[in-house]
Structure formats: C-alpha cells, structure tokens
C-alpha cells in the first residue's frame, strides 16, 4: 500500500518539479552570461498560458498529429516516474527496467518524428530526419552504457542497480567513469541541449527538435513542452540514480529516510542543473554533420567501457 502511495507521490513530484528544473537551468544560464533572466517559475506560467490558448491544427493534419502530444507526454511522464528518485520502494519498481525505459523514450521519439512528417511542411521533415539520425547514433551508445551498468550491478532493474552501487564496494571503476561520460553525452543529444541542438531558438536552419514541433500550438504545444521538461528531469534523475544513489531511501524505511532522500534528490538536481548551465554557456553548438562524430565519441566510450569491464573481470 505504501508502495502505491509513494508511486503516486513520485508521479506528482516529477510532474511538479520538471518545469522548475527547466526554469532553474534557464535562470542559471542567463546569470552566467550576465543577464538577469526570468524567474525560475516562468515555465509554469508559459505552460498555463499555452493550456488556456486555442489549439490550431493544420487543415491536412491527420489524427496522428492530434494524438502525438498525449502519447509523448504519457510516455515521458511514465518514464520519469519509474526512475527511483527519493526512494526505491515504488509500486512500479519491478517494471523500472533500463531497457523498458529506453523503449519508452524511443516510442516517444518515434511518435514525434511521425507527427513532424504528418503535416508535410519542409521544416517538419528536416527535423524528423535529423532527429532520427541522432537517435540512430544515441541509442546504441545508451544501450552500451546500460550493458556496462548491468554487468557491474548484475541486473537491469534500476532499483537493484541503485542498491548495488550504494551497498557493494564498487570502488573507482574505469568502466563506470566512461559509462557516465557516455551517458551524459547521450543525455545532451536526447534532450536537444547545446552541442547538439539549441533549445532556446526557433526558426533557425540548424534546429532539430523545435523544427519537428513547429506546427503545434495551444494545449498540444504545452504537452510537448512539458514532455521535454520531463525528459530533462528523467535524465538527471537517471544519472543520479545510477551513479550517485546516496541518500536514497530503501523500501520499507520510515518517512524520515524518504524525507532525507527527497532533500538529497533536490540537491543532486540543482547540482546537475548548474553543471548543465555551465556546460551550455561554455561551448558552442556543433554543425549538424558533426553531431554524428560527437555521438560516435559516446558510442566509443561505451564500447571501451564494456571492453575494459571484461578485461578487469578476466584478471
């Protein structure tokens, strides 16, 4: 019963925290380049404004175009609420498998790409094709990271991975360090952050994600944007859960432990947001055709991580 309650709490929590996280990242970025920046609660206002507006749909749009925002939002909300954040005692814990999470992300991406093609504008087509190119390189890298982590922890279930990383004497593993870097690179690409895509622009020939969702308005756009915010939260929670699971409460522990876990999670997210803002302000966006090299780097790190894991196992 407590499992169900914590699961519901977690679902509400990720939904409530995701816009705040995006707002904090935007504020930190603005401050780093010497601007005042909007208040961190600005994303909530944006979402509310979009929800109140009328949704305009292109004349030749099919049902697919209208369904996609809901599908994408549902998939990402589910993914974000499956990752253990403050406690591992969640009701849906047995389904929180790394490969299932990748599948959820991939289906959301697939729907977005289809919707980008659906209206038939050239921008949508460009966005979809580029997004698929990025996905085809990011997903193998992500899978190699998952292989590395699950070979170390002996499981692909996130709760068990977190438990293993916290309890067992894992030590300073080279493979895990490489997997962490590779996962960060994949997360940057998946979230359309700066070296790969620019989240802050519209109407630029180099944009990828924004090009696909250019035709959306009103509540559809609100859902798509909320899904993007949830995705950022998902990746930060995932990195925190796998590589820094300290402070997280286990199943059946008293509420005080969960409160500590909540505080620790908030701290990790703030740290991640700060690091992301720092990274985004210190590097420039790549040309689209260099993205493949960037992601090939992530893939390479993943391959090396697996190779070194086998080597150190073989000794």
């Amino acid at each position: 019963m407590t499992g169900v309650l914590t699961q519901l709490l977690q679902m509400m929590l990720v939904l409530g925290a995701a816009p705040l996280l995006t707002g904090v990242v935007r504020l930190a970025k603005a401050r780093l380049v010497g601007r005042r920046g909007p208040s961190p609660i600005q994303p909530y206002r944006d979402l509310l404004r979009l929800l109140r507006k009328e949704a305009v749909v292109a004349e030749n749009a099919s049902w697919l175009f209208r369904v996609t925002p809901y599908m994408v939002f549902a998939a990402l909300w589910l993914a974000a609420s499956l990752v253990p954040t403050f406690t591992t005692g969640l009701a849906l814990e047995p389904t929180a498998d790394l490969i299932a999470l990748v599948a959820l992300l991939a289906s959301a991406r697939f729907m977005t790409a289809l919707a980008g093609l659906d209206v038939g504008t050239s921008f949508g087509g460009i966005g979809s094709s580029r997004d698929m190119m990025i996905a085809s390189l990011a997903e193998p890298a992500m899978l190699l990271v998952i292989f590395t982590v699950s070979i170390v922890a002996g499981s692909t279930a996130l709760a068990e991975v977190a438990h293993h990383m916290r309890e067992a004497e894992v030590g300073l593993r080279v493979s895990l360090a490489m997997a962490l870097v590779a996962l960060i690179m994949v997360a940057l690409a998946e979230n359309a952050r700066i070296p790969v895509d620019n989240p802050a622009t519209h109407l630029e020939l180099t944009m990828v994600h924004e090009a696909m969702v250019l035709e959306y308005s009103g509540r559809h756009l609100a859902l798509i944007e909320a899904a993007g915010m949830l995705k950022l939260l998902f990746f930060l929670s995932l990195i925190a859960c796998i590589f820094a699971p300290w402070g997280m409460a286990g199943p059946g522990e008293p509420p005080a432990a969960a409160a500590v876990g909540l505080l620790a999670w908030g701290g990790k997210l703030l740290l991640g947001a700060g690091a992301l803002a720092l990274l985004e302000t210190s590097i420039a966006k790549m040309r689209v055709f260099r993205v493949s090299e960037f992601l090939a780097g992530a893939l390479l790190l993943g391959v090396l991580a697996v190779i070194f894991l086998y080597v150190s196992r073989g000794l």
Binding site: E169, G171, L172, R173, V174, A177, S312
Partner: peptide
Amino acid sequence: KDLYFDTAHM
C-alpha cells in the same frame, strides 16, 4: 590495495 589499483588504472 584496491584504491591503489583503481587509481592507477583510472
């Protein structure tokens, strides 16, 4: 001993 090894490896 592990720390020595891990750091050198790293």
